[in-house]
Amino acid sequence: MFDARQVVQRKLVSEGSAIAKALDYSLKRWEALTRYLDDGHVPIDNNWVENQIRPWAIGRGNWLFAGSLRAGQRAAAIMSLIRSAQLNGHDPHAYLKDILTRLPTHRASEVDMLLPHRWQPTAVVG
């Protein structure tokens, strides 16, 4: 919790001002805002998470008009494959090129081997 000095300082700012609103916002969330001081494992900000989701948040407006529900579902599946490939340390272009080349002759019972977490690139002979 915040202490009495913070409340006294807050009363010095006129009600309804932008500064008052910002202070009220901060004081209501004081415990969460200072949590990182009690535990060194808690990051001071959430910039890493924000940076990870930014492309998806920005694209959300663009994907709204994918053409149809099925087109949106297909786009979501491809985006999931691309992001999963990245999270598994693969170059998404190389991954997609390889699996799309293999897919027509790949056994349906072994299609799970083409998922990003199990994928092994085709050995290049030459």
Rank of each mutant, 00 (worst) to 15 (best):
A4K: 11
R5Q: 11
R5E: 15
V8I: 13
Q9G: 00
R10I: 05
L12N: 12
V13Y: 07
S14L: 10
E15K: 12
G16I: 06
G16H: 06
S17F: 06
A18W: 03
D24S: 10
Y25W: 09
R29N: 13
E31I: 00
A32D: 09
Y36D: 01
Y36E: 02
D38M: 08
D39I: 12
G40E: 07
P43R: 14
D45P: 00
N46L: 11
N47G: 09
I53H: 08
W56G: 05
G59R: 01
R60G: 03
G61Q: 01
F65G: 05
L69K: 04
R70C: 01
A71R: 06
A71G: 09
G72D: 07
R74P: 02
R74L: 12
A76Y: 04
A77N: 12
M79I: 12
L81F: 05
L81H: 06
I82G: 01
S84D: 14
A85G: 09
A85C: 09
Q86E: 13
L87Q: 06
L87I: 10
H90P: 08
P92V: 07
A94S: 14
D98I: 02
D98E: 01
D98W: 01
I99V: 15
R102F: 10
L103H: 12
P104E: 02
H106L: 08
L114A: 00
L115P: 00
R118I: 00
T122P: 01
G126M: 03
